[in-house]
Simulated scan of single mutants.
Amino acid sequence: MKNLVRRRDDRMVAGVCSGVADYLGLDPTLVRLLTVVLAIFSVGTAALAYVAAWILMPEV
C-alpha cells in the first residue's frame, strides 16, 4: 500500500512534488513543472494548495 508523504531525499523546496510524483508513479520534474504552471494560471490557488500539502503531508 502506498502512502502520500513528503520525501527528504528528492526535494527542491519541501518535498511535496516529489512525494506526489512517487505516489502517482510520475517523474518529479514533470510534477514540479505542472505545479508551477498551475500556480501561475490559477492565480495562486495551486500555491495555497502546495502550502497546505506542505503542512499536512507527513515527511519521511
Results as ranks from 00 to 15, higher is better:
R7C: 10
V20F: 04
V5P: 03
A52I: 15
Y50H: 11
A46H: 01
L26Q: 05
N3G: 08
L26H: 08
P58Y: 01
G19S: 06
R7M: 12
L38P: 04
A39K: 07
R7Q: 08
R32P: 02
M57W: 10
V36G: 00
W54E: 15
V37Q: 08
A49M: 12
G44M: 09
I55D: 12
R7V: 15
D22F: 01
L4M: 05
L34D: 04
A52W: 15
L33M: 07
K2N: 06
V20Q: 00
M1C: 01
V36M: 07
V31A: 01
L30I: 15
A53Q: 09
V16Q: 00
T35M: 09
L48M: 15
L30R: 11
S18H: 00
L24D: 03
V20M: 04
V31D: 02
A14T: 15
A46W: 06
V37W: 06
G44L: 10
L33S: 06
Y23H: 04
Y23F: 13
W54H: 15
G25R: 00
P58N: 03
R32Q: 10
I55C: 12
M12N: 09
M12C: 11
P58G: 01
A47Y: 02
V60C: 10
C17A: 10
D22K: 05
A47G: 14
R8S: 04
M12I: 14
A39E: 07
L26N: 03
V13L: 13
T29R: 02
L34V: 13
D27S: 08
A14P: 03
L48H: 13
V5T: 09
L38H: 08
R32T: 13
A46T: 13
A52V: 15
A14L: 09
L48N: 12
A47P: 01
D22N: 07
L48R: 13
L26W: 12
V51K: 15
V5W: 04
R8C: 07
L26F: 10
E59V: 14
A49Q: 09
D27F: 06
D27Y: 03
L38C: 15
G44V: 09
A47D: 05
P58I: 05
G25D: 01
D10R: 11
F41T: 12
